Computed example of a mutant assay.
Amino acid sequence: MKPYLLSLAAGLLVGIVYGLINVRSPAPPVIALVGLLGILIGEQIPPWFKQVVSRQASTTAWVGQQVKPHVFGQLPCGQLPKKAADAPPQRRDAS
């Protein structure tokens, strides 16, 4: 959740700067973003319908396992950086 909030804060800051210097944002218009949201949600309807027709496991579990990861994406899980002593020496090319 933290990366999403940081991304939102950075976007707001850039938007304020753009507003102060009277520059239009290169971001797509809101209607395009709403369309993208519709695509993400619409992709979930056929599998949901198939599940309802076949009366498989509970819908709540399906939403948590299928919809959330696809619509909201997987949060990044980074690795700790290696120490400089553990890293292999870098090769220098003779150019």
Score class of each variant (00 low, 15 high):
94 A>H: 00
32 A>E: 06
54 S>L: 05
71 V>N: 08
62 W>M: 11
20 L>F: 05
11 G>V: 05
51 Q>G: 12
20 L>S: 09
76 P>S: 10
23 V>H: 12
12 L>D: 05
22 N>Y: 15
73 G>D: 02
58 S>K: 08
46 P>S: 11
51 Q>F: 03
16 I>M: 14
94 A>R: 00
34 V>E: 09
42 G>S: 02
72 F>E: 01
44 Q>E: 01
86 D>C: 04
82 K>A: 09
29 P>I: 11
26 P>C: 13
2 K>L: 13
24 R>G: 05
5 L>M: 12
71 V>D: 02
16 I>G: 13
31 I>N: 15
81 P>H: 01
48 W>L: 08
79 Q>P: 07
75 L>K: 01
33 L>P: 04
84 A>S: 12
70 H>R: 11
71 V>F: 06
59 T>Q: 14
60 T>V: 12
59 T>Y: 03
20 L>Y: 05
89 P>D: 04
71 V>W: 05
93 D>T: 11
14 V>E: 13
31 I>E: 15
1 M>T: 04
19 G>F: 07
39 I>P: 09
86 D>W: 03
76 P>H: 05
6 L>W: 04
47 P>G: 00
2 K>M: 15
37 L>K: 06
85 A>C: 00
26 P>N: 13
52 V>T: 06
2 K>I: 11
52 V>E: 00
